[in-house]
Structure formats: structure tokens, C-alpha cells
Design a protein around this nucleic acid. Structure first.
Ligand SMILES: [Mn+2]
Ligand SMILES: [Mn+2]
Ligand SMILES: [Mn+2]
Ligand SMILES: [Mn+2]
Lengths: 228, 228
DNA sequence: ATTCCGACTTAGTTGAGACTAACTTTCAAC
DNA sequence: GTTGAAAGTTAGTCTCAACTAAGTCGGAAT
């Protein structure tokens, strides 16, 4: 039974997800980058890349010393895992009352283990959400991925009015910090001023008295769209 | 870090759970029984039992050729996994709309992977439930387990009035069959008659027109308490 | 007492997926 | 062009948790 090896392990899933994310931007993902992202050794990555390329159907196109890209199959699988991940984050946040810095780790464990039935249940419960708590788009049931916000807050000028669309979700510390300042997806921001010395931005955040000051390294990880 | 090996694998968890269930009734669990329950070879079980006994602290008391019992530590761990399992089943049933024959497999995968935070979220969401959809008691937050119903429907006589408390959850087929006949935890039953030939029971089930007839092998797997 | 069967154990393999150590390739700086 | 560092690969090892094949043990029936 099951001739077309439809099952993938936790390890394989996480590799595919990493490769997917690393290849938004650069053409191929390098061994080093994947190793860093997954916090494992380069040697382990080389071994796994060979396996992924040798699968039937192949999950990646691997060229020695030149890195990898996902095949159509690998990409489908990656998107499926990402859909699980983001639906789970949304569920943890909205239904179980997690804070947005707690959701990632839990989702990263659960994403490999839930069934289609579970996914379907979440979608129904949450009303087919389109974005996770960090503002990342959730691939739809056909695994089509909406556009990911890329305009960074750090690129703005005084007087600009924007809406926060997405925040880099890699760093729990940062997420806690931003939550404290009410910098969350959906909030309106008016840029008051920018320091010429340190590049600090002064902001007026909607529903929040007083101004918020953010350093440039932080502003680089907040993505916005123009307001109205 | 983490000197007191507090982590346990999926495999270890499932062994402990099996041993817990097998030792309700008999004093020690045999290699054969565990192998059958987990659908793996006896040899694999022997190997694992040695490991469980060698853990620090030991999870089981293992005597060659005489079987195993859980230690206090093993029992705590088993009860924790069972708590996860039954909370998850309740969640899947009540919140995600699973039918009661679908919940077991999903819960058996998720039970190893959810955090304390998740458990806490479920408890809050579900209102600290005491029983899972099959009527099995959920260990409380101190891992104290309530009494499990043991009086089988098959032991009753015409005229007896009872309430269904629990149904054996091992067989999805049976669960579907019983759901079709409205034999669910909480339903009232009046025993109308019992056949002397085949032992069939005729029943009147609350909220259900017409009578229900059950064979003795099935009635043995339904557990009840006297009504009022 | 012998025999036999089922339960149990031992020994040796396997496959995943990680690791370290050592080697090779590439490429930029001098 | 040589050199050095970073990136990548290879080789060999480890742990976990499964497997099969080949015993051993113990009790029941003869
Ligand atoms: Mn993951
Ligand atoms: Mn996210
Ligand atoms: Mn399980
Ligand atoms: Mn149950």
C-alpha cells in the first residue's frame, strides 16, 4: 500500500521548510545556511540533502558545492508544513490564549503530527484565517501562498503613515519587546522623526499614548504597507 | 543541563501507557502482552524493558521472565501521558468536531508533543473536564485518577435501569456501531429482556424510539452505573 | 521423567538522523 | 600565482528503536 511515499519525517519536513525560507531571496540555499537555521552540523546537512534528492519523487535539486532548490514536490510539501505551522500558531494565539512569542516552538513540534482532519477542524474553528499572529500569510487549501510584506519600517521617512503588516517571528525576545510597545500587525503608525546619528525612529502608534522609539536593527524587522 | 532526565520519547511514553493499562487487573505485565498491545516484536519489548529499568530514576521494576510493573516515577509519567491523551480526545471531540471513533489515533500522536502550556490551555478552554468522550476519567492536574467504571452491561437483568458511563475505546468499528444506536456515555438504559439462547439484550435507550438489541460480546464492553 | 509449546531472551542487523575529524574545493586578498 | 579561510564533502561513529533468527526456560500434558 502507499506506493508514492507520501509520508515525510519531522526531520525532512523541517529541512524542506528551511530551504523554502532560505530560497526566498537567493536562488539556492547553501549547506552552511541550512545548518545554521536548523542548528545542526554541516556534515549532517550534506547527508540529508543527498537523501532528499534521492527520494522518489525527488524533493530537492541538489548540486554538489552549489546548494539546493526545492522541486515542485518539495515545495508542495514545504507549503503544507508551513500551512500547518501558521494555522497552529493562529489557533494557539486565538483559542488557547498563547502570547505571540510562545506560539512558534509549539507549532514547530505539532506541525508534523496533525492530520488533514485536524487541519480542516482548525480552519473551520478559526474561520479560514489568512494570516498568522505575526502577519505572515497562511497558504490556502490549494497551498497557494499570498504575498509576504517586504517593505521595512526602517525605510520610512518622517510624516509617512503606514499599517504594520508583519513582524519577523524568529526572535521571541523581539516579539515580547514589541508587544510591550503595542507594535502589532494591524496597528497604524505615523513616523514622527528619524535621528541622523543613530537612525532611531520616533513613532506614534495607534491606540497608544506617547511616542515609541525604535532602533534601526529593530525597525528592519517590522514590515508595513502604506496607510490608505 | 537537565540532570534529572525529565524528557521521554514517544516510544517510551507508549510503553509506559501500555504497561499502566495492562497492570490494571493483573499484577505484572508480560512481554507478550506488551508486544501485542504495541504491535511490535517480543524481542523489541525485552530490549526496551531493560532500558526502562536502567533509567535514572527507573521507570519500571523488571524481572526476567516474570514481567514488569511501573515504579512510582513510571506511573506518574504514564498518568501524565494519559492525561494528555484524554484531554486531547475531549478537545478533538468537543472543539474540532471529531466523531468519537476518530479521536484516538490523533490523540495518540499529539499526546507526546504538547507542552504544559498547551495542556493548561486545553483545561481552560474545556472547563477542566473530568471524562473523555468514551467516559474514561481524566487524571487531574495532580495526576490523581478517578474511578473507572467496571460494571458491564452484559451482567444486567431485565428491569434494571442504568446509565452508560464508559465504552471500551479500543475498537473504532464498535464505537461507530454504538453511536448509530445512540449508546453513548450519559444515556439512560432500561433492560427489557435477555435471550436465554444467544444472550442478546433488548434495551430501551433514552431519547431513542424503538428498542436496541446488543449481542453479549458487545454488551461486555459497555460499562454502566445504576440509575438513581 | 520426557516432551512439547508458548513465553521470553540473546545475538546480530537495520535505518534514521545526528555527531566529529579530516580532507577538498572555491574564491578573495595579497 | 600563492595562500588562507570559509564552505562543503567524506569517512567513520553513535544512539534509538525497530527487526529476524536462534536459542532458553518453565509448566502442562503425556
Ligand atoms: Mn517543526
Ligand atoms: Mn509565524
Ligand atoms: Mn501515543
Ligand atoms: Mn478515550
Amino acid at each position: 500500500m502507499e506506493r508514492t511515499a507520501e509520508h515525510t519525517s519531522t526531520a525532512v519536513d523541517d529541512y524542506l521548510k528551511s530551504i523554502f525560507h532560505l530560497t526566498r531571496g537567493s536562488v539556492r540555499a547553501g549547506t552552511r545556511d541550512i545548518a545554521d537555521a536548523l542548528r545542526i552540523s554541516q556534515a549532517s546537512v550534506t547527508a540529508m540533502l543527498k537523501k532528499l534528492a534521492a527520494m522518489e519523487p525527488p524533493m530537492v535539486d541538489y548540486r554538489k558545492r552549489e546548494g539546493v532548490v526545492l522541486t515542485k514536490h518539495g515545495e508542495k510539501r514545504a507549503l503544507s508544513v508551513i500551512r500547518h505551522h501558521r494555522l497552529l500558531e493562529t489557533f494557539l494565539y486565538q483559542t488557547l490564549g498563547y502570547s505571540w512569542d510562545e506560539v512558534h516552538d509549539e507549532a514547530c513540534r505539532l506541525e508534523h503530527v496533525i492530520s488533514d482532519r485536524f487541519e480542516e477542524g482548525l480552519v473551520k474553528l478559526l474561520g479560514n484565517p489568512t494570516h498568522d499572529p505575526h502577519g505572515d500569510p497562511i497558504p490556502d487549501h490549494k497551498l497557494r501562498l499570498g504575498r509576504t510584506a517586504t517593505e521595512a519600517l526602517s525605510a520610512l521617512h518622517p510624516g509617512d503613515r503606514v499599517v504594520v503588516e508583519r513582524v519577523d517571528d524568529k526572535d521571541a525576545e523581539l516579539l515580547r519587546y514589541l508587544a510591550g510597545k503595542s507594535v502589532l500587525p494591524g496597528r497604524r503608525i505615523l513616523v514622527l522623526s528619524r535621528s541622523n546619528f543613530d537612525g532611531n525612529l520616533s513613532l506614534q502608534v495607534s491606540g497608544c499614548r506617547g511616542k515609541v522609539v525604535l532602533g534601526p536593527e529593530i525597525a528592519e524587522r517590522i514590515f508595513v504597507r502604506l496607510d490608505r
